[in-house]
């Protein structure tokens, strides 16, 4: 067993794991953060997305020990003071989900998309950038709509702050 230490959702944590333990398993089973989902086992679906040091990565395709020393944000870590993140709110308002299984990954992917590309996103870009996230219900239409709505709202917030 190896001790891994990392910051998860702003909190310094550590845990004992086997070296072969996936980051997704560590988050779900050791930390009880079951919002990170395991959808496919073939690194394609993106349901397990978390942000590591500010970048979206597939937590099912890396070991917990690889993330030791890093800062990890999961779906549980994006709301603040009980207030949903703008992206979460937009998914709720636009019904950007059907069964909801892919939703945590979709939201972490969408936030990463805006971090990388800014808030001026068109539909084509959003669809292209969702290449690493699969919705088995094929509910993409409202997912894309939700991301566009959140991007527009974030642009307004940024503008108001200036």
């Amino acid at each position: 067993m190896t001790t891994v230490s990392m910051t998860v959702n702003g909190k310094q944590i550590s845990g004992e794991v086997e070296d072969r333990t996936l980051l997704s398993t560590f988050l779900r089973e050791n930390q009880g953060l079951t919002g990170t989902h395991i959808g496919c086992d073939t690194s394609q679906c993106g349901a397990c997305l978390v942000h590591m040091d500010g970048k979206a990565v597939k937590s099912c395709s890396m070991l917990a020990v690889q993330a030791s020393g890093s800062a990890v944000t999961t779906i549980e870590g994006i709301s603040q003071n009980g207030q949903l993140h703008i992206m979460q709110k937009a998914f709720k308002e636009n019904h950007g989900l059907q069964c909801g299984f892919c939703t945590p990954g979709m939201i972490m992917s969408a936030i990463d998309m805006i971090n990388r590309l800014g808030t001026d996103l068109d539909e084509k870009t959003i669809r292209h950038e969702l290449e690493g996230n699969i919705c088995r219900c094929t509910g993409y239409h409202n997912i894309v709509k939700a991301i566009k709505a959140a991007a527009d709202e974030m642009a307004e917030v940024l503008e108001a702050a200036e």
Partner: peptide
């Protein structure tokens, strides 16, 4: 290559 998340790693 791959998708945005694969490209981060």
């Amino acid at each position: 290559i791959g998708d945005p998340h694969v490209r981060h790693m």
